[in-house]
Write a protein that binds this DNA or RNA. Sequence first.
DNA 1: CGAGGCCTTGACCGCGGTCAATGCCCGTGG
DNA 2: CCACGGGCATTGACCGCGGTCAAGGCCTCG
Lengths: 200, 200
Amino acid sequence: MLQVKNAKAIHTMIAYLKKIDDFMKQLDDSILAKLNDCSSTVSFKKGDYLLRQGHVCRQSFQVLSGIARKYMVAGDKELTTEFFFETDVAISFESYVMQTPSNEHIQAITDMSASVMDYTAFQHAKAQYPQLAELDAMLGDYYAVWLEKRLFQFHTLSATERYQLLLTNQPELVQKVPLTFIASYLGISLETLSRIRARI
Amino acid sequence: MLQVKNAKAIHTMIAYLKKIDDFMKQLDDSILAKLNDCSSTVSFKKGDYLLRQGHVCRQSFQVLSGIARKYMVAGDKELTTEFFFETDVAISFESYVMQTPSNEHIQAITDMSASVMDYTAFQHAKAQYPQLAELDAMLGDYYAVWLEKRLFQFHTLSATERYQLLLTNQPELVQKVPLTFIASYLGISLETLSRIRARI
DNA sequence: CGAGGCCTTGACCGCGGTCAATGCCCGTGG
DNA sequence: CCACGGGCATTGACCGCGGTCAAGGCCTCG
Protein backbone atom coordinates (compact mmCIF):
# COMPACT_ATOMS: atom_id res chain seq x y z
CA MET A 1 0.00 0.00 0.00
CA LEU A 2 2.39 2.71 1.12
CA GLN A 3 5.04 3.01 -1.53
CA VAL A 4 7.58 5.57 -2.54
CA LYS A 5 8.55 7.81 -5.43
CA ASN A 6 9.29 5.07 -7.91
CA ALA A 7 8.99 7.62 -10.62
CA LYS A 8 12.03 9.43 -9.31
CA ALA A 9 14.22 6.42 -8.83
CA ILE A 10 17.66 7.03 -10.16
CA HIS A 11 19.82 4.00 -10.45
CA THR A 12 21.96 4.65 -7.38
CA MET A 13 18.92 5.08 -5.17
CA ILE A 14 17.10 1.90 -6.04
CA ALA A 15 18.72 -0.08 -3.26
CA TYR A 16 17.53 2.42 -0.71
CA LEU A 17 14.01 2.41 -2.13
CA LYS A 18 13.99 -1.34 -1.80
CA LYS A 19 15.13 -1.05 1.77
CA ILE A 20 12.21 1.26 2.54
CA ASP A 21 9.87 -1.03 0.69
CA ASP A 22 11.03 -4.07 2.60
CA PHE A 23 10.75 -2.18 5.84
CA MET A 24 7.14 -1.33 5.16
CA LYS A 25 6.25 -4.87 4.23
CA GLN A 26 7.46 -6.08 7.61
CA LEU A 27 5.36 -3.66 9.59
CA ASP A 28 2.92 -5.14 12.05
CA ASP A 29 -0.76 -5.19 11.16
CA SER A 30 -1.53 -3.01 14.16
CA ILE A 31 0.73 -0.33 12.73
CA LEU A 32 -0.87 -0.51 9.33
CA ALA A 33 -4.26 -0.26 10.98
CA LYS A 34 -3.06 2.81 12.83
CA LEU A 35 -1.92 4.40 9.60
CA ASN A 36 -5.27 3.67 8.05
CA ASP A 37 -6.86 5.32 11.05
CA CYS A 38 -4.98 8.55 10.44
CA SER A 39 -5.81 8.80 6.76
CA SER A 40 -8.75 9.16 4.41
CA THR A 41 -9.23 9.22 0.68
CA VAL A 42 -10.02 12.53 -1.03
CA SER A 43 -10.67 13.43 -4.66
CA PHE A 44 -9.51 16.56 -6.46
CA LYS A 45 -10.39 18.02 -9.82
CA LYS A 46 -7.87 19.39 -12.26
CA GLY A 47 -6.81 22.80 -10.98
CA ASP A 48 -7.79 22.18 -7.36
CA TYR A 49 -5.28 23.07 -4.68
CA LEU A 50 -4.11 20.51 -2.12
CA LEU A 51 -2.17 23.26 -0.37
CA ARG A 52 -1.96 26.98 -0.85
CA GLN A 53 0.99 29.29 -0.43
CA GLY A 54 0.77 30.97 2.97
CA HIS A 55 -0.99 28.06 4.64
CA VAL A 56 0.70 25.60 6.96
CA CYS A 57 1.08 22.13 5.44
CA ARG A 58 -0.87 20.07 7.98
CA GLN A 59 -1.38 17.02 5.82
CA SER A 60 0.55 14.67 3.62
CA PHE A 61 -1.02 13.47 0.39
CA GLN A 62 -0.15 10.14 -1.07
CA VAL A 63 -1.24 10.15 -4.68
CA LEU A 64 -3.55 7.29 -5.57
CA SER A 65 -4.27 8.41 -9.12
CA GLY A 66 -3.61 11.47 -11.28
CA ILE A 67 -0.80 14.01 -11.14
CA ALA A 68 -0.01 17.00 -8.93
CA ARG A 69 2.70 19.62 -8.99
CA LYS A 70 4.31 21.77 -6.37
CA TYR A 71 5.28 25.31 -7.34
CA MET A 72 6.01 28.73 -5.98
CA VAL A 73 5.38 32.18 -7.34
CA ALA A 74 8.58 34.21 -7.57
CA GLY A 75 8.00 37.68 -8.92
CA ASP A 76 5.79 37.30 -11.98
CA LYS A 77 6.86 33.74 -12.71
CA GLU A 78 5.78 30.34 -11.55
CA LEU A 79 8.52 27.98 -10.50
CA THR A 80 7.64 24.30 -10.52
CA THR A 81 9.63 22.45 -7.87
CA GLU A 82 8.25 18.92 -7.97
CA PHE A 83 5.78 16.60 -9.66
CA PHE A 84 3.81 13.90 -7.89
CA PHE A 85 2.64 10.71 -9.54
CA GLU A 86 0.95 7.61 -8.25
CA THR A 87 2.42 6.43 -4.91
CA ASP A 88 4.38 9.69 -4.43
CA VAL A 89 3.87 11.54 -1.17
CA ALA A 90 3.13 15.21 -1.74
CA ILE A 91 4.02 17.74 0.93
CA SER A 92 5.65 21.14 1.13
CA PHE A 93 8.64 19.85 3.05
CA GLU A 94 9.77 22.89 5.00
CA SER A 95 6.23 23.86 5.88
CA TYR A 96 5.44 20.32 6.94
CA VAL A 97 8.42 19.65 9.18
CA MET A 98 8.56 23.13 10.71
CA GLN A 99 4.81 23.70 10.66
CA THR A 100 5.26 27.19 9.27
CA PRO A 101 3.41 28.86 6.38
CA SER A 102 4.27 27.32 3.03
CA ASN A 103 5.83 29.32 0.23
CA GLU A 104 4.61 26.75 -2.24
CA HIS A 105 1.32 25.70 -3.75
CA ILE A 106 0.43 22.09 -4.41
CA GLN A 107 -2.05 21.74 -7.21
CA ALA A 108 -3.75 18.91 -9.09
CA ILE A 109 -2.84 19.12 -12.77
CA THR A 110 -5.21 16.31 -13.66
CA ASP A 111 -8.23 14.95 -11.85
CA MET A 112 -6.77 12.97 -9.01
CA SER A 113 -7.32 11.18 -5.73
CA ALA A 114 -5.06 10.94 -2.72
CA SER A 115 -4.75 9.34 0.66
CA VAL A 116 -4.62 12.25 3.08
CA MET A 117 -2.91 11.90 6.44
CA ASP A 118 -3.07 14.46 9.21
CA TYR A 119 0.26 15.78 10.49
CA THR A 120 -0.62 15.77 14.17
CA ALA A 121 -2.21 12.34 14.04
CA PHE A 122 0.90 10.98 12.38
CA GLN A 123 3.13 12.59 14.99
CA HIS A 124 1.17 10.77 17.67
CA ALA A 125 1.39 7.55 15.73
CA LYS A 126 5.15 7.97 15.51
CA ALA A 127 5.40 8.44 19.25
CA GLN A 128 3.41 5.27 19.74
CA TYR A 129 5.25 3.18 17.15
CA PRO A 130 8.99 3.89 16.87
CA GLN A 131 9.04 2.00 13.60
CA LEU A 132 6.90 4.73 12.08
CA ALA A 133 9.42 7.31 13.22
CA GLU A 134 12.08 5.22 11.55
CA LEU A 135 10.07 5.04 8.37
CA ASP A 136 9.53 8.78 8.44
CA ALA A 137 13.26 9.36 8.83
CA MET A 138 14.01 7.09 5.90
CA LEU A 139 11.58 8.97 3.70
CA GLY A 140 13.14 12.27 4.76
CA ASP A 141 16.60 10.94 3.98
CA TYR A 142 15.41 9.81 0.61
CA TYR A 143 14.06 13.25 -0.15
CA ALA A 144 17.38 14.83 0.84
CA VAL A 145 19.28 12.51 -1.49
CA TRP A 146 16.83 13.33 -4.25
CA LEU A 147 17.43 17.03 -3.63
CA GLU A 148 21.19 16.48 -3.79
CA LYS A 149 20.79 14.87 -7.19
CA ARG A 150 18.64 17.66 -8.49
CA LEU A 151 21.00 20.29 -7.14
CA PHE A 152 23.90 18.51 -8.81
CA GLN A 153 22.07 18.71 -12.10
CA PHE A 154 21.58 22.46 -11.82
CA HIS A 155 25.15 22.81 -10.65
CA THR A 156 26.72 21.07 -13.62
CA LEU A 157 24.39 20.43 -16.54
CA SER A 158 23.24 22.63 -19.41
CA ALA A 159 19.56 23.08 -20.18
CA THR A 160 19.74 20.48 -22.92
CA GLU A 161 21.46 17.95 -20.70
CA ARG A 162 18.92 18.44 -17.93
CA TYR A 163 16.09 17.86 -20.36
CA GLN A 164 17.67 14.76 -21.82
CA LEU A 165 18.20 13.38 -18.35
CA LEU A 166 14.56 13.95 -17.52
CA LEU A 167 13.63 12.30 -20.77
CA THR A 168 15.56 9.13 -19.97
CA ASN A 169 14.70 8.99 -16.27
CA GLN A 170 11.02 9.93 -16.47
CA PRO A 171 9.76 9.67 -20.05
CA GLU A 172 6.18 9.37 -18.90
CA LEU A 173 6.46 12.71 -17.13
CA VAL A 174 7.45 14.43 -20.36
CA GLN A 175 4.47 12.91 -22.10
CA LYS A 176 1.84 13.70 -19.51
CA VAL A 177 2.83 17.13 -18.23
CA PRO A 178 2.43 20.43 -20.16
CA LEU A 179 5.73 21.80 -21.43
CA THR A 180 5.18 25.05 -19.58
CA PHE A 181 5.50 23.21 -16.27
CA ILE A 182 8.43 21.13 -17.44
CA ALA A 183 10.29 24.24 -18.55
CA SER A 184 9.89 25.92 -15.17
CA TYR A 185 10.83 22.66 -13.46
CA LEU A 186 14.06 22.60 -15.46
CA GLY A 187 14.66 26.29 -14.82
CA ILE A 188 14.50 27.31 -18.48
CA SER A 189 12.08 29.32 -20.59
CA LEU A 190 9.33 27.64 -22.53
CA GLU A 191 10.87 28.89 -25.78
CA THR A 192 14.23 27.36 -25.03
CA LEU A 193 12.63 24.04 -24.16
CA SER A 194 10.74 24.10 -27.41
CA ARG A 195 13.97 24.68 -29.34
CA ILE A 196 15.76 21.92 -27.48
CA ARG A 197 13.01 19.50 -28.40
CA ALA A 198 13.06 20.59 -32.04
CA ARG A 199 16.80 19.95 -32.12
CA ILE A 200 16.42 16.28 -31.20
CA MET B 1 12.75 41.72 -2.63
CA LEU B 2 14.77 38.59 -3.03
CA GLN B 3 16.64 39.76 0.00
CA VAL B 4 13.46 40.02 2.04
CA LYS B 5 12.38 36.57 1.03
CA ASN B 6 15.68 35.15 1.96
CA ALA B 7 15.84 36.97 5.24
CA LYS B 8 12.53 35.44 6.12
CA ALA B 9 13.74 32.07 4.92
CA ILE B 10 16.88 32.31 6.99
CA HIS B 11 14.78 33.24 9.96
CA THR B 12 12.75 30.06 9.87
CA MET B 13 15.95 28.06 9.53
CA ILE B 14 17.37 29.74 12.59
CA ALA B 15 14.21 29.04 14.52
CA TYR B 16 14.54 25.40 13.64
CA LEU B 17 18.20 25.38 14.66
CA LYS B 18 17.17 26.81 17.99
CA LYS B 19 14.63 24.03 18.37
CA ILE B 20 17.36 21.48 17.77
CA ASP B 21 19.61 23.28 20.21
CA ASP B 22 16.94 23.35 22.91
CA PHE B 23 16.25 19.70 22.30
CA MET B 24 19.88 18.83 22.87
CA LYS B 25 20.04 20.84 26.05
CA GLN B 26 17.21 18.83 27.50
CA LEU B 27 18.85 15.50 26.83
CA ASP B 28 19.57 13.30 29.80
CA ASP B 29 23.12 13.10 31.09
CA SER B 30 23.20 9.40 30.34
CA ILE B 31 22.51 10.16 26.68
CA LEU B 32 25.23 12.78 26.51
CA ALA B 33 27.60 10.32 28.11
CA LYS B 34 26.65 7.79 25.49
CA LEU B 35 27.38 10.28 22.74
CA ASN B 36 30.74 11.01 24.28
CA ASP B 37 31.39 7.30 24.31
CA CYS B 38 30.87 7.05 20.57
CA SER B 39 33.12 9.94 19.65
CA SER B 40 36.71 11.09 19.83
CA THR B 41 38.63 14.21 18.91
CA VAL B 42 40.89 14.14 15.87
CA SER B 43 43.16 16.77 14.32
CA PHE B 44 43.72 17.36 10.60
CA LYS B 45 46.23 19.46 8.73
CA LYS B 46 45.37 21.68 5.81
CA GLY B 47 44.89 19.46 2.79
CA ASP B 48 44.14 16.29 4.77
CA TYR B 49 41.15 14.23 3.75
CA LEU B 50 38.40 13.37 6.23
CA LEU B 51 36.78 11.21 3.55
CA ARG B 52 37.82 10.17 0.09
CA GLN B 53 35.69 9.63 -2.97
CA GLY B 54 35.00 5.92 -3.38
CA HIS B 55 35.06 5.18 0.34
CA VAL B 56 31.99 4.62 2.46
CA CYS B 57 31.32 7.46 4.89
CA ARG B 58 31.44 5.58 8.18
CA GLN B 59 31.89 8.58 10.44
CA SER B 60 30.41 11.95 11.07
CA PHE B 61 32.73 14.87 11.82
CA GLN B 62 31.60 17.75 13.94
CA VAL B 63 33.99 20.61 13.34
CA LEU B 64 35.57 21.98 16.51
CA SER B 65 37.94 24.43 14.80
CA GLY B 66 39.06 25.21 11.27
CA ILE B 67 37.25 24.79 7.95
CA ALA B 68 36.52 21.84 5.66
CA ARG B 69 34.90 21.53 2.28
CA LYS B 70 33.06 18.77 0.50
CA TYR B 71 33.56 18.42 -3.24
CA MET B 72 33.33 16.02 -6.10
CA VAL B 73 35.37 15.60 -9.23
CA ALA B 74 33.18 15.82 -12.32
CA GLY B 75 35.16 15.42 -15.51
CA ASP B 76 38.22 17.63 -15.19
CA LYS B 77 36.63 20.05 -12.74
CA GLU B 78 36.17 20.15 -9.03
CA LEU B 79 32.70 20.92 -7.78
CA THR B 80 32.47 22.23 -4.23
CA THR B 81 29.18 21.20 -2.67
CA GLU B 82 29.46 22.39 0.92
CA PHE B 83 31.64 24.18 3.45
CA PHE B 84 31.90 23.20 7.10
CA PHE B 85 32.68 25.66 9.88
CA GLU B 86 32.78 25.36 13.63
CA THR B 87 29.85 23.27 15.01
CA ASP B 88 28.87 22.07 11.52
CA VAL B 89 28.53 18.33 11.05
CA ALA B 90 30.44 17.12 8.01
CA ILE B 91 29.32 13.97 6.22
CA SER B 92 28.73 12.85 2.67
CA PHE B 93 25.00 12.49 3.14
CA GLU B 94 24.07 9.86 0.60
CA SER B 95 27.10 7.74 1.43
CA TYR B 96 26.38 8.06 5.13
CA VAL B 97 22.71 7.17 5.17
CA MET B 98 22.93 4.46 2.52
CA GLN B 99 26.40 3.26 3.52
CA THR B 100 27.52 3.17 -0.08
CA PRO B 101 30.76 4.50 -1.62
CA SER B 102 30.90 8.28 -1.60
CA ASN B 103 31.19 10.31 -4.77
CA GLU B 104 32.53 13.21 -2.75
CA HIS B 105 35.73 14.09 -0.94
CA ILE B 106 35.76 15.91 2.37
CA GLN B 107 38.94 17.85 2.88
CA ALA B 108 40.39 20.20 5.47
CA ILE B 109 41.11 23.56 3.86
CA THR B 110 42.75 24.88 7.02
CA ASP B 111 44.29 23.06 9.94
CA MET B 112 41.33 21.78 11.89
CA SER B 113 40.03 19.50 14.60
CA ALA B 114 36.79 17.57 14.76
CA SER B 115 34.73 15.34 17.00
CA VAL B 116 34.49 12.08 15.10
CA MET B 117 31.58 9.73 15.67
CA ASP B 118 31.32 6.22 14.30
CA TYR B 119 28.27 5.45 12.18
CA THR B 120 27.57 1.99 13.60
CA ALA B 121 28.06 3.08 17.18
CA PHE B 122 25.62 5.91 16.63
CA GLN B 123 23.06 3.59 15.07
CA HIS B 124 23.21 1.47 18.19
CA ALA B 125 22.91 4.52 20.37
CA LYS B 126 19.81 5.57 18.42
CA ALA B 127 18.23 2.17 18.97
CA GLN B 128 18.89 2.51 22.67
CA TYR B 129 17.74 6.12 23.04
CA PRO B 130 14.78 7.11 20.85
CA GLN B 131 15.58 10.74 21.55
CA LEU B 132 18.79 10.36 19.60
CA ALA B 133 16.83 9.00 16.67
CA GLU B 134 14.62 12.05 16.96
CA LEU B 135 17.65 14.33 17.01
CA ASP B 136 19.08 12.59 13.98
CA ALA B 137 15.81 13.04 12.11
CA MET B 138 15.75 16.74 12.94
CA LEU B 139 19.26 17.19 11.61
CA GLY B 140 18.33 15.34 8.44
CA ASP B 141 15.27 17.52 7.99
CA TYR B 142 17.40 20.60 8.46
CA TYR B 143 19.78 19.45 5.77
CA ALA B 144 16.87 18.83 3.40
CA VAL B 145 15.53 22.34 3.98
CA TRP B 146 19.00 23.75 3.42
CA LEU B 147 19.19 21.84 0.14
CA GLU B 148 15.82 23.20 -0.91
CA LYS B 149 17.09 26.73 -0.35
CA ARG B 150 20.24 26.13 -2.31
CA LEU B 151 18.32 24.50 -5.12
CA PHE B 152 15.97 27.47 -5.21
CA GLN B 153 18.95 29.77 -5.64
CA PHE B 154 20.27 27.82 -8.61
CA HIS B 155 16.77 27.63 -9.99
CA THR B 156 16.12 31.34 -9.97
CA LEU B 157 19.15 33.54 -9.35
CA SER B 158 21.87 34.82 -11.63
CA ALA B 159 25.53 34.31 -10.77
CA THR B 160 25.76 37.84 -9.40
CA GLU B 161 22.69 37.41 -7.22
CA ARG B 162 23.96 34.13 -5.83
CA TYR B 163 27.25 35.73 -4.92
CA GLN B 164 25.59 38.71 -3.28
CA LEU B 165 23.38 36.41 -1.28
CA LEU B 166 26.39 34.47 -0.08
CA LEU B 167 28.06 37.75 0.77
CA THR B 168 25.21 38.91 2.98
CA ASN B 169 24.45 35.53 4.54
CA GLN B 170 27.99 34.31 5.14
CA PRO B 171 30.46 37.17 4.84
CA GLU B 172 33.06 35.29 6.88
CA LEU B 173 32.99 32.47 4.36
CA VAL B 174 33.87 34.85 1.54
CA GLN B 175 36.79 36.20 3.54
CA LYS B 176 38.26 32.91 4.67
CA VAL B 177 37.80 30.64 1.67
CA PRO B 178 39.83 30.83 -1.59
CA LEU B 179 37.82 32.26 -4.49
CA THR B 180 38.42 29.15 -6.55
CA PHE B 181 36.34 27.12 -4.11
CA ILE B 182 33.68 29.78 -3.82
CA ALA B 183 33.32 29.93 -7.59
CA SER B 184 32.80 26.20 -7.90
CA TYR B 185 30.40 26.32 -4.94
CA LEU B 186 28.35 28.95 -6.78
CA GLY B 187 28.56 27.01 -10.01
CA ILE B 188 30.43 29.71 -11.94
CA SER B 189 33.93 30.06 -13.33
CA LEU B 190 36.66 31.73 -11.33
CA GLU B 191 36.96 34.44 -13.98
CA THR B 192 33.28 35.31 -13.78
CA LEU B 193 33.44 35.52 -10.01
CA SER B 194 36.41 37.83 -10.28
CA ARG B 195 34.50 40.12 -12.64
CA ILE B 196 31.45 40.12 -10.40
CA ARG B 197 33.59 41.20 -7.47
CA ALA B 198 35.26 43.92 -9.51
CA ARG B 199 31.85 45.25 -10.47
CA ILE B 200 30.82 45.89 -6.86
C1' DC C 1 -16.66 30.39 -36.47
C1' DG C 2 -14.15 32.90 -33.08
C1' DA C 3 -11.55 32.84 -28.63
C1' DG C 4 -8.16 31.26 -25.77
C1' DG C 5 -4.70 27.60 -24.38
C1' DC C 6 -0.52 25.77 -25.65
C1' DC C 7 3.39 25.37 -28.39
C1' DT C 8 6.67 26.87 -32.15
C1' DT C 9 9.64 29.94 -34.64
C1' DG C 10 12.32 34.17 -35.54
C1' DA C 11 15.24 38.23 -34.30
C1' DC C 12 18.04 40.12 -31.06
C1' DC C 13 21.18 40.51 -27.19
C1' DG C 14 23.41 39.94 -22.66
C1' DC C 15 25.31 36.73 -19.23
C1' DG C 16 28.71 33.81 -18.36
C1' DG C 17 32.25 30.26 -20.29
C1' DT C 18 36.86 29.46 -22.40
C1' DC C 19 41.50 30.55 -23.57
C1' DA C 20 45.35 33.20 -22.80
C1' DA C 21 48.15 36.75 -20.92
C1' DT C 22 49.39 39.34 -16.93
C1' DG C 23 49.74 40.65 -12.01
C1' DC C 24 50.56 39.66 -7.28
C1' DC C 25 52.14 37.32 -3.20
C1' DC C 26 54.98 34.29 -0.90
C1' DG C 27 58.28 30.55 0.21
C1' DT C 28 62.66 28.67 -1.10
C1' DG C 29 67.31 28.45 -2.55
C1' DG C 30 71.42 30.55 -4.67
C1' DC D 1 68.95 39.63 -0.03
C1' DC D 2 67.43 39.12 -4.37
C1' DA D 3 65.72 35.95 -7.90
C1' DC D 4 62.92 32.68 -9.31
C1' DG D 5 58.87 29.67 -9.44
C1' DG D 6 54.24 28.32 -8.22
C1' DG D 7 49.70 29.24 -6.52
C1' DC D 8 46.01 32.34 -6.77
C1' DA D 9 43.53 36.19 -8.72
C1' DT D 10 42.63 39.75 -12.41
C1' DT D 11 41.81 41.31 -17.05
C1' DG D 12 40.91 41.07 -22.06
C1' DA D 13 39.02 39.02 -26.42
C1' DC D 14 35.80 36.17 -28.21
C1' DC D 15 31.62 33.50 -28.62
C1' DG D 16 27.71 30.44 -27.71
C1' DC D 17 23.80 29.30 -24.67
C1' DG D 18 19.69 30.69 -23.24
C1' DG D 19 16.42 34.81 -22.13
C1' DT D 20 13.04 38.21 -23.90
C1' DC D 21 9.80 40.13 -27.05
C1' DA D 22 6.84 39.36 -30.70
C1' DA D 23 4.48 36.99 -34.22
C1' DG D 24 2.48 33.28 -35.82
C1' DG D 25 0.43 28.00 -35.92
C1' DC D 26 -2.63 24.63 -33.98
C1' DC D 27 -5.71 22.66 -30.96
C1' DT D 28 -10.25 22.35 -28.38
C1' DC D 29 -14.36 24.05 -26.86
C1' DG D 30 -18.12 27.27 -26.67
